[in-house]
Nucleic acid binder design. Structure first.
Length: 983
DNA sequence: ATCCTCCCCTAC
DNA sequence: TAAGGTAGGGGAGGAT
């Protein structure tokens, strides 16, 4: 039986629905609350009805209107609102975004967009939910007029739930012989422009069968860049675009999106809490709300980390300066860490070093924002689907403006020919622009954003050998320049962004500040202001969203806009639109943006290079061949340092040079896909549509700065803390992963022990190891345990470690249970757990099912001769022996938390169903901890069990946890007069 | 062939 | 001092 939130709760025989369990009590309490609130709401509002009589909704994830608002609407209009999903009682699930895994599971359910509710209220009657179904829409896409071959292609590429990862164009079906099909009404009409790049389609047509077909969006008979034998039959004026990227259900979830974190009753506290937070939030525009909320961060920047209370003992660390770097030592006070974050208690600072680093890391912020703005755009897309649509103030303004002018030839061209038009909007030297918004004195001056505030010179640190390092890097980059001995004394703070004036002097982004200062002595340094960047970025996105929601977020300062429909609707030229957008952005942010325009994403991006700074450039299709011929290959996306140098060795420096190489040659040199990419890119061909919904495939956290360990324990502590960070991110994304990868950077043999750059990793080798888990997890503890195992397997000298990263892959929604078919369980344990009788003394298992193995039947903790794995476990802790005269409570002989943890983990992971005897052993152990007044350990144990047992695919483990907790709480209550708060 | 695993590369 | 993160794509090479 699946432990998944949806399916598990769906079955009535799981025992939680009606047996008077905790869950049932909670649900009925919430229902009571709802009934109580309803009349009050009706009174407040005035407009009420009974149109939702008989309807009970459960809101999954973030929605617009928010869950809170939907709850209110249900109150007003006679419906029910369920905070928990119950298949028998919940009639409709309301959602706008669902992870793919969830969609697969819910195929039989009524999953409906929130507009069903708002529209019904507008209409004054309950509308049919059918047309509001979230994923029925996917199935009902009209493919009827697709030709036979198109259908063939669909089978392989069109499953909107399952994008083919190796197939960037898999979400659009185009080929040369199909006729136009009726498009999804909500799709922008993209016509004749996205030349097909579908491999399957290509393979089905003989090479060169269409001499005139390979174009970059402009249909012309001769393309000088193209030899007929290299042609793919990929272009057609008739494009079949199923629009799956529009109707895709977004997978990425917003940070404040709420879903049941777990199905079982055991998850109650966690889920309940999160749900309440969710319903209390006034989100009116989901993505926007989350972005704005983040702009005013709460003092506690660690909301999702339920492991927080473990801080202060388990993951204590302090920072010790050694060789100019921070060192982490376990088990010491970390009060110092909390000092820089007012309002944060000491226990919230366990990841002090890590979070401090991330808070200062521009790269970390850039990555985070990219995700967040993608979510923002996702939310816009969801809104866009809403009946009635949004108000596009920017668009309306432009429309009015346009009404006063006569339309030019070009706008007519766009109206009638419907040439696809993509805008690439890119803020000019973003960090600098934001940084000097209120510094008019710096406008027009060479400015760089960097962490270095000084003159750009620093003292060389003992032990470093900058010359050696620079030589190494130069050799690697095949630049045999003389090493500047003076470099040693220069600041190695990186320039995140520099003004065009600075660029004129040779300063570049990423350059060390000291070097830049040499090149440009007048260079002014401006500090980072991450908050401001985010504000401006949001403003930019809001501006774009006032024109269209067909936006793809590329980063905090860069976005793609598919303007095809907009231009047709407005009857304006791309330049008109770009000008309006740029003016708006400038007005709202005080910063300038450049806009590149072209018939596809590639061309739009290349046009931006020409547009910058503070300009716009529309690369017309007929100019493409001439334009692209002279472009350096390095300007193509995907061509970086490595590929550039490989191309140089092939005597290729411009796109024109690259056009001379045959596709087979390129594929031989670079591999099939990269070869094809190069072949197409250098001709300006690229047909990926603008898309906003991308499926996340990994979640990771790494730190390759200031990593200096002297002892193994430090590395282990760090891995644990990093795991907690990963847990936080997984929880934030509502994901769990099955595969864990540990990545380490290790000082290269012979490299200076102390790198030239302060805290830097220096010259390193990279190592990575991964492990697959039986079940997906988001547990930091579990990830830490695996990471530590991997770490030991690597047999590193910890002193040489310079970087550590943890990545989690093979993701799925944290509420989906992939297995759904664990080993069969007996009934007795369930009965025992459901009976929920506090059990203070162990008793014999009365009903041991026959199927249990003898090992299990004997009891895990009794048969088990526990070998405490930790070396320290043999030493009796002094504090305990001193202050506790009676025997220390043990679980199967273990008393150190680390050993208990190991024991519990083994128990839960190796056994599909716990024995009553063992459960009672644990209860007994916990009871003894209460008696021993060791609430700290008790808390850790409970907390750990909660994670462990609730993430098990066997729901019986969740029940076991509830049973244990309930029993322990009774004892705690008796002893202390209140219960333990487990978050 | 196709998958998996371990990398490297690229982009922001 | 300084904050060298993060996610995705894909190639190489081995296992199946």
């Amino acid at each position: 039986m699946s432990r998944d939130g949806w399916r598990k709760k769906a079955s009535e025989d799981d025992g939680w629905g009606g047996r008077g369990g905790y869950m049932a009590a909670k649900i009925s309490k919430l229902e009571e609350q709802f009934q109580k609130d309803a009349p009050r709401e009706k009174q407040k509002d005035g407009t009420s009805s009974c149109i939702f009589s008989g309807v009970a909704i459960y809101v999954n994830g973030y929605t617009d209107p928010s869950a809170d608002e939907l709850r209110r609407l249900m109150m007003l209009h006679g419906g029910q609102f369920h905070l928990y999903y119950t298949r028998s009682k919940t009639t409709h699930i309301i959602a706008t975004n669902l992870p793919n895994s969830k969609i697969q599971e819910l195929k039989g359910e009524k999953v409906v967009r929130p507009e069903w509710i708002t529209d019904s209220i507008k209409a004054g009657c309950q509308l049919s939910y059918v047309q509001y179904q979230l994923y029925a829409k996917q199935k009902s896409l009209n493919f009827t007029s697709i030709c036979a071959r198109g259908k063939q292609d669909l089978s392989s590429t069109n499953d909107p739930f399952k994008p083919n990862p190796s197939h960037p164009q898999s979400d659009s079906i185009k080929n040369g012989s199909c006729s136009i099909i009726e498009e999804d009404a909500e799709r922008p009409r993209v016509n004749g422009i996205h030349d097909g790049d579908d491999d399957d389609a290509c393979a089905l047509l003989p090479r060169g069968s269409q001499d005139t077909s390979l174009t970059n969006g402009y249909v012309h008979p001769v393309n000088g860049a193209l030899k007929p034998q290299d042609s793919f039959a990929e272009h057609s004026p008739h494009v079949v675009d199923i629009g799956s990227h529009q109707s895709h259900l977004p997978q990425t979830e917003s940070r404040d999106r709420e879903e049941p974190s777990c199905s079982s009753a055991g998850s109650k506290s966690n889920f309940h809490q999160r749900s309440l937070i969710s319903t209390a939030s006034p989100a009116k525009q989901p993505g926007l709300h989350s972005m704005q909320k983040d702009l005013h961060p709460k003092p506690t920047s660690n909301p999702g980390t339920s492991a927080a209370p473990q801080k202060g003992n388990l993951h204590d660390q302090t920072r010790v300066r050694l060789n100019g770097s921070y060192h982490m030592t376990p088990n010491s006070s970390n009060l110092a860490d909390s000092s820089h974050q007012p309002g944060r208690s000491g226990k919230g600072a366990e990841a002090g070093v890590i979070s401090e680093f991330f808070s200062h890391s521009r790269l970390h912020h850039i990555s985070t924002w990219r995700n967040e703005f993608s979510e923002y755009v996702n939310a816009l897309q969801s809104r866009r689907r809403a009946a009635g649509g949004a108000v596009f103030s920017g668009k309306e303004k432009l429309k009015k403006l346009k009404a006063n002018c006569s339309s030019g030839i070009l706008s007519l061209w766009f109206m009638f020919v419907r040439q696809s038009c993509i805008l690439h909007v890119d803020m000019d030297c973003f960090f600098v622009s934001v940084g000097i918004r209120h510094r008019p004195d710096l406008i027009g001056k060479p400015v760089a954003v960097t962490s270095n505030r000084g003159p750009g010179r620093v003292a060389q640190r003992p032990g470093s050998n900058p010359q050696l390092e620079f030589q190494y890097y130069q050799r690697k980059q095949k630049q045999y320049r003389k090493v500047d001995l003076d470099l040693a004394a220069l600041s190695m703070a990186e320039i995140a962004s520099c003004s065009y004036e600075a660029r004129q002097a040779g300063v570049r982004n990423g350059m060390f500040f000291g070097r830049a200062k040499q090149l440009c002595p007048d260079l002014q340094s401006v500090p980072y202001d991450f908050q401001a960047y985010k504000e401006v970025a949001l403003s930019m996105y809001e501006t774009l969203a006032s024109y269209t929601h067909n936006i793809e977020a590329l980063s905090c300062d860069e976005a793609l806009v598919d303007a095809t429909n907009l231009l047709v609707e407005l009857g304006v030229t791309p330049d008109d639109l770009a000008r309006a957008i740029r003016e708006d952005i400038k007005e709202k942010t005080g910063c300038s943006a450049s806009v590149g325009m072209g018939s596809n994403i590639l061309l739009a991006r290349m046009a931006t290079r020409k547009a910058k700074p503070n300009g716009q450039y529309f690369l017309r299709s007929e100019e493409v061949d001439d334009f692209i011929r002279d472009q350096p290959v390095s300007s193509l996306p995907g061509v970086g340092r490595s590929m550039s140098s490989k191309l140089t060795s092939l005597r290729v420096s411009t796109c024109g040079d690259l056009q001379q190489l045959s596709i087979s040659r390129l594929q031989r040199e670079f591999g099939p896909r990269t070869g094809q990419m190069l072949f197409r890119f250098c001709r300006g061909l690229y047909d990926r549509p603008v898309r906003s919904e991308k499926e996340r495939k990994s979640v990771s956290a790494e730190m390759n700065y200031n990593i200096r360990f002297t002892q193994v324990e430090e590395a282990e502590t760090f891995l644990t803390n990093l795991s907690m960070e990963v847990q936080k991110r997984l929880e934030g994304a509502g994901l769990r992963g099955r595969r864990i990868t540990l990545k380490v950077m290790v000082r290269k043999p012979g490299a200076p022990v102390e790198p030239a750059k302060y805290g830097g990793h220096g010259i390193c080798d990279n190592f990575a190891r991964s492990v697959s888990l039986a079940q997906p997890t988001d547990s930091g503890q579990l990830i830490a345990a695996e990471a530590i195992k991997l770490f030991h397997a690597m047999k590193l000298d910890v002193k040489d470690m310079r970087g550590v990263g943890l990545q989690v892959q093979q993701l799925e929604g944290s509420h989906a249970d992939p297995s759904g078919q664990g080993p069969s369980r007996g009934r007795s344990i369930k009965d025992l757990l459901l009976a929920k009788q506090p059990a203070h003394s162990p008793k014999k298992d009365p009903l041991a099912p026959q199927g249990w193995s003898s090992v299990i039947r004997t009891g895990f903790f009794k048969s088990k001769n526990v070998q405490c794995p930790s070396s320290s476990s043999t030493d009796v802790p002094e504090t305990l022996s001193k202050f506790n005269p009676r025997p220390v409570p043990t679980l199967a002989g273990a008393y150190e938390f680390s050993d208990i943890r190991t024991l519990l983990r083994e128990w839960v992971t190796t056994i599909s169903e716990p024995m009553e005897e063992d459960i009672l052993q644990v209860v007994k152990f916990c009871t003894e901890l209460v008696e021993d007044k060791d609430l700290e350990k008790l808390y850790l144990v409970i907390k750990y069990m909660k994670r462990l047992m609730q993430q098990s695919s066997e729901s019986v483990w969740s029940m076991a946890f509830d049973f244990i907790l309930d029993n322990v709480q009774v004892v705690v209550q008796q002893t202390y007069g209140s219960t333990l708060k487990i978050t």
